[in-house]
Simulated scan of single mutants.
Amino acid sequence: MTTPYPRAFVVGHPIAHSRSPLIHGHWLAEHGLPGSYTRLDVHPDAFPDFVRSLAAEGFVGGNVTIPHKEAAFRLAHGLTPRAERIGAVNTLWFEDGLLHGDNTDAPGFLAHLDASLGAGWPEATGVAKGRAALVLGAGGAARAIVVGLLERGLPRLIVANRSAERAEGLTALDPARITAVPWGAMPAQLPETGLVINTTALGMAGQDPLALDLAPLPAEAAVADIVYVPLETPLLAAARARGLAAVDGLGMLLHQAVPGFARWFGLTPSVTPALRARIVADLEGHG
């Protein structure tokens, strides 16, 4: 099947909640580009056949979300070094007739930190000189973020998770720089922590809040939460109340979308205040 314009997608199960069509639709309209971006609900059992049919269906690539990221990793013919380290793929595209995969969550998170805190945040928070970056959780998002922090050169990362086994699994990425601690040991880490990152669902609408007293954190520390519904989680509210820099979860979603759009539609878009405002309005309208 051939089309007169590039066709891309986001695939997941379920997928109705995805804001990716709004993001990519905004950029297509902003730049007057021909193209389409569709959300597709594909059951895990049907996902391998779906991936094999992409070229025949006329797709130039797309985004992959839960629960298909690990399957996409296994099905892609070519992988970026980052995707290989993370073990999951959220962006697919064709190159020389072969399907390639990347994980843009890592650079998306780092780009949002740079935009929110300034490019000098490793020095400003002290994590460039030995204060820890404390990652809460050890799931797929945590793994991507840890890889991104390693790529940025942070010397000391601590992973806290309720399942010690999963946390230990992340230390294998770089045993010299990553330490795993039990969930209950988090408070003891805070005096020497420059960046706290919540990658769990705690604080999300309908979930329990993340109960963590931020008082021991240094005054220069920053707190980030990848949850974006609500945009202001209890953790971020507590950080702001203490006068700490707080980074919400929406920017990661916006910035991770940039590399895929560039590959499919041939233009590198910008994450602008207008785009953010559009997604915030949608979140407030639908929850």
Rank of each mutant, 00 (worst) to 15 (best):
F73E: 01
R152C: 03
L79R: 10
A115F: 05
L75D: 06
G12F: 09
R39P: 15
S18I: 05
H26E: 14
P48R: 14
R74A: 15
V135A: 00
V135D: 00
T80N: 08
L98N: 08
G260W: 09
A167Y: 01
A144F: 02
S18T: 02
L231I: 14
L267Y: 10
H24N: 07
M204Q: 09
Y5D: 12
L98W: 02
L110H: 13
I226L: 08
G118C: 09
F9E: 02
L136C: 08
G184L: 05
H31R: 15
T199R: 05
A128S: 14
D208P: 09
P273V: 01
H31Q: 15
R276M: 07
S20E: 02
V42T: 12
P14I: 04
T200S: 11
N103R: 08
E70S: 06
P182R: 13
G169F: 07
P216L: 01
G266F: 00
S163R: 12
I86W: 02
E70H: 06
L75A: 07
F94C: 08
H13K: 02
V229W: 03
A72L: 01
V127G: 02
P182W: 11
L173D: 00
I15C: 04
V89L: 05
A176D: 15
V60L: 15
V196N: 03
F47H: 12
G139T: 07
N90I: 12
L136G: 06
I178H: 00
L110A: 13
A180H: 08
Y37K: 06
A274D: 14
A72C: 01
L283E: 06
H112W: 07
G266M: 02
H17Y: 14
V258T: 15
W121F: 02
L157V: 12
E30L: 14
P67F: 13
H286S: 14
W27R: 01
D213Y: 11
V271R: 00
L117A: 09
R143D: 03
L173C: 10
L170I: 01
P21I: 06
T91E: 09
R166M: 10
N63D: 07
R143C: 04
A46W: 10
S20G: 04
P269E: 00
H112Y: 10
T272M: 01
D102I: 01
A224R: 11
P209M: 09
P234M: 04
P209Q: 10
L110S: 06
V64P: 07
T80V: 03
